[in-house]
Simulated scan of single mutants.
Amino acid sequence: MMNVYLGLGTNLGDKEQNLRMAVEKIGERIGKIVSLSAFYVTEPWGFSSGNSFLNAVVCADTKLPPLQLLNETQAIERELGRTHKSVNGQYSDRLIDIDILLYGEEVIKTAELVLPHPLMTERRFVMEPLVEIAPDLIHPVFHKTMSELLDR
Rank of each mutant, 00 (worst) to 15 (best):
I133P: 03
L119G: 13
I33M: 03
N71C: 00
G104A: 08
P65H: 08
N71T: 06
R152G: 09
N71K: 14
T110Q: 06
L69W: 00
I100D: 02
P140H: 12
R29F: 11
A75L: 12
I96P: 02
M21I: 00
E79W: 10
L64E: 04
L19E: 05
V34N: 08
N55V: 07
G31I: 03
R152M: 14
D151F: 04
V114Y: 01
R20C: 11
P118S: 06
A38C: 11
R123V: 13
V131E: 06
L54R: 10
E132A: 12
L6N: 01
V41Q: 14
G50M: 08
V107N: 11
C59R: 13
C59Y: 00
H117L: 06
D93M: 12
M21S: 14
I30A: 02
A60H: 04
N3R: 12
E112Y: 07
V4D: 00
N3V: 10
V141H: 07
R152Q: 14
W45V: 15
N71S: 14
K32D: 14
R78T: 15
E16N: 12
C59K: 08
A111F: 04
G31Y: 02
Y103N: 09
S86C: 11
E28V: 13
L137S: 03
Q17C: 04
S49F: 01
L119W: 01
Q74L: 15
E132G: 00
A56K: 02
A75K: 15
V34R: 15
L67Y: 08
Y5I: 04
